[in-house]
């Protein structure tokens, strides 16, 4: 008994240290995470519910909501298709240059959002590489909606692929090979074998991709040209209101984006929990 007591003492911290560390950790998180979270809603509701609602019903706010939904509505499905295709090729096959491909897919994570937007101005702007071509065909890309979509596609590019690659690598190829040998077509194999195995990871990747697509600021700020009612997504609308000293309205719109972030966190927690439960069911 005595020896186990000694081990316990030597493998655990004294209660006082435990309490002190816990208080320190929670204090830090409270100061850096909880206080800002509370502040968003406190500022948004500073002038009451009526002012809050009217800030969200304003035509500029509504057009920003529409544009945000449109941008994410294009960028997320395209990245979904790309992410599944890339993960399929990378996780299930060996080919020269595979590691290089993985590195290149991750590139946008290492690029400052400002540069992610800027490259599209260098490409399609008036002095850009393809600028004369775009003008000749009367295509408005930068300072217009297509530019916002392209910049969003760029910054969200790695999200789905990055979730799926390790997951599909861990699954291996046996189940799919068995389906093929038993006569399944490629599409049947994908729908009945691959998709059920990756659904939680896929869902998680899509959720993260969507959160970033709707919340992106730096990249879309550069390509938008700040044309009110035309090229303003929700984060850009927040910036405009804030810079015009309409603080309450800025925080009202910001609170919508904060709710989106909280829903994303909730979805992430649920997906992780479901995924873990399924793994333990199989075991």
């Amino acid at each position: 008994m005595r020896s186990s007591g000694v081990t316990a003492r030597a493998t655990r911290e004294p209660v006082a240290v435990k309490v002190a560390l816990t208080v320190l950790a929670l204090g830090f998180l409270g100061l850096f995470l909880v206080v800002p979270l509370v502040a968003v809603f406190a500022q948004a509701l500073e002038k009451g519910w009526a002012a809050y609602a009217s800030a969200l019903r304003e035509p500029m706010a509504l057009s920003a909501v529409k544009l945000t939904l449109l941008t994410a509505g294009i960028a997320v499905p395209l990245n979904l298709v790309f992410g599944v295709a890339a993960a399929w090729a990378i996780a299930k096959f060996e080919f020269p240059g595979r590691n290089a491909l993985v590195t290149l897919i991750d590139l946008p994570f290492g690029v400052s959002p400002v540069i992610s937007g800027m490259v599209f101005i260098l490409l399609f702007g008036r002095q850009g590489l393809l600028g004369p071509w775009a003008q000749a065909h009367d295509l408005k890309i930068v300072f217009a909606v297509p530019g916002l979509v392209l910049a969003t596609l760029f910054v969200t590019f790695p999200f789905v692929a990055r979730e799926l690659i390790p997951l599909m690598q861990a699954e291996g190829t046996e189940e799919e090979e068995a389906a093929r040998v038993l006569g399944a077509s490629g599409w049947q194999m994908f729908r009945r074998v691959t998709l059920p195995n990756i659904k939680w990871g896929l869902l998680y990747g899509v959720i993260l991709c969507n959160a970033r697509a709707m919340g992106e600021f730096g990249a879309v700020s550069v390509v938008s040209g700040h044309i009110r009612g035309k090229t303003n997504t929700l984060p850009l609308h927040v910036e405009i209101l804030y810079n015009e000293y309409q603080f309450q309205a800025a925080f009202a719109v910001a609170s919508v984006l904060t709710l989106l972030a909280l829903v994303t966190l909730l979805a992430k927690t649920v997906v992780e929990w479901r995924g873990r439960r399924e793994v333990s069911d199989v075991d």
Partner: peptide, 20 residues
């Protein structure tokens, strides 16, 4: 779960909130 909050929160919202 809250630790991921800065990942999920749009940066512009973080910016105006911290400034305020």
């Amino acid at each position: 779960a809250l630790v991921d909050f800065p990942f999920a929160l749009p940066t512009a919202v973080a910016g105006i909130t911290l400034t305020t």
